[in-house]
């Protein structure tokens, strides 16, 4: 079974430092998550998450400061409102909503960071690879469409994971 591929978007001030704290405490966690540093979790547009899935990620982790502790006062308030909507949207389009996890991790919470990563990696490991789900869904959709209308739109290949396509 292929290893889950996970991208974590971490805010610079709390969560990225929290990940550093986990490192300084030499806490061990699975290597699946690759961290992309953003200034604030408020910077993470829903589109960024969607593009990450489109690139083949099996899971996306969004970590920000605790509410009230945002380095930018209220950037994470946006995250708190935005991400649940995005999760609903994912669910609506047939993507398991648990592929996106949002957590608040402070700079001191190395232990929490490691726990979240461990749990999330296990959650994702229990799911089929994202690309498989999507292909399965598309085939299903195509069948349904051809059955209904007698003609099928071409399923768009959902792969952006080529080096130059950024």
């Amino acid at each position: 079974m292929a290893e889950p591929k996970i991208i974590g978007f971490l805010c610079n001030w709390c969560s990225y430092r929290g990940a550093d704290t986990a490192g300084m405490a030499r806490l061990k966690y699975p290597p699946n998550v690759k961290i992309v540093r953003v200034p604030c979790s408020g910077r993470i547009s829903p589109e960024l998450v969607l593009r990450t899935f489109r690139a083949g990620a099996d899971g996306v982790l969004v970590l920000g400061c605790h509410i009230g502790d945002c380095h930018y006062t209220s950037g994470n308030h946006r995250t708190a409102k935005r991400m649940p909507v995005l999760k609903k949207l994912l669910e609506y389009t047939g993507v398991e909503p648990q592929r996106l996890r949002v957590e608040w991790v402070s700079a001191a919470e190395g232990e929490k960071f490691a726990t979240v990563v461990r749990e999330f990696t296990e959650t994702i490991r229990a799911l089929p690879p994202f690309m498989e789900t999507m292909q399965g869904r598309e085939q299903g959709a195509r069948k349904q469409r051809s059955g209904e209308k007698g003609q099928g739109e071409k399923g768009q290949a959902v792969k952006e994971a080529a080096w130059t396509s950024a």
Binding site: V36, A57, W163, A166
Partner: peptide
């Protein structure tokens, strides 16, 4: 921290993992 920069960082990691 443009979209292009963040996406290419993510793509770089994804590419390697793939």
């Amino acid at each position: 921290f443009t979209d292009e920069q963040l996406v290419s960082e993510m793509i770089g990691a994804m590419w390697a993992m793939n």
